[in-house]
């Protein structure tokens, strides 16, 4: 569904991506793990064709209009309310008029919250609205950049449950995070990214087993530390 092979990208003299190879299968939840500046967002930008790689191939095997994207704060107008924010894309995708409210309810922004301006929302609610915008048109591929970064643990868990539910409907999910526990619980496969290189890729539990990092609970952070010598 998603494939990158031998992707190289530099900005001026700095190499940001150094030979990235990855493949995400249909219906999988795949996470790209790494610290800030590892190159996660650059990978998203290349996948969505917002920037071009210096060399290599990147492709998503669905049309651009079948990809849902949630960025940190992108895609929302702070002066419009939640319903109005979704109405723009509901009209573009020719969705039923009831669809925006349905989606808002599914992310816990139904009722009075739907009429609130985006600027009045808390950070967590804002992030859920961004997720609602990304899943509004039931995309076949969902790309999420740090989907739970600003959420409290309870809200983060509810977002993870929602992502599981979306995956059950056949959506392939590609996300970036630096939350190792979340990746461990949520993802089928992960890739550990450090300084523009993928240092490890595979099933998170298997990776932890391989590196004897399961201990009492599987510990991906320990694997990352072992592979890179750097703490997250």
């Amino acid at each position: 569904m998603i494939r990158m092979s031998n992707i190289y990208k530099s900005f001026k003299d700095k190499t940001v991506l150094d030979g990235i190879n990855l493949e995400v299968n249909e219906g999988e939840i795949f996470a790209l793990l790494g610290p800030s500046g590892a190159g996660k967002t650059t990978i998203i930008n290349i996948l969505t064709k917002w920037i071009e790689a210096d060399s290599g191939e990147a492709e998503i095997s669905v049309g651009q209009n079948e990809i849902g994207i949630m960025l940190d704060s992108g895609g929302l107008y702070t002066h419009l309310n939640c319903l109005e924010n979704l109405d723009l894309y509901a009209r573009i995708y020719d969705l039923p008029k009831t669809r925006p409210m349905e989606i808002l309810e599914s992310v816990g922004l139904g009722g009075d919250d739907a009429k609130k301006a985006a600027s009045e929302l808390s950070r967590g609610m804002f992030q859920r609205l961004a997720l609602a915008r990304a899943i509004l048109y039931s995309p076949k591929v969902l790309i999420l950049d740090e989907p739970t970064s600003a959420l409290d643990p309870g809200t983060a868990r509810s977002v993870c449950k929602l992502l599981q539910k979306i995956r059950e409907n056949g959506t392939t999910i590609f996300l970036t995070t630096h939350n190792m526990d979340e990746a461990l619980k949520l993802c089928d496969r992960v890739a550990l990214l450090f300084e523009g290189k993928i240092v490890k890729q595979g099933n998170p539990v298997e990776i932890c087993e391989e590196h004897n990092a399961l201990r009492t609970v599987p510990d991906l952070e320990a694997v990352f530390l072992e592979m890179t010598g750097v703490e997250l």
Partner: peptide, 17 residues
């Protein structure tokens, strides 16, 4: 400019606008 800074120009473009 607002549509560009909020990434909506790109999202709209991807959506086929």
């Amino acid at each position: 400019t607002e549509d560009r800074s909020t990434m909506n120009l790109r999202f709209m473009s991807m959506a086929g606008v």
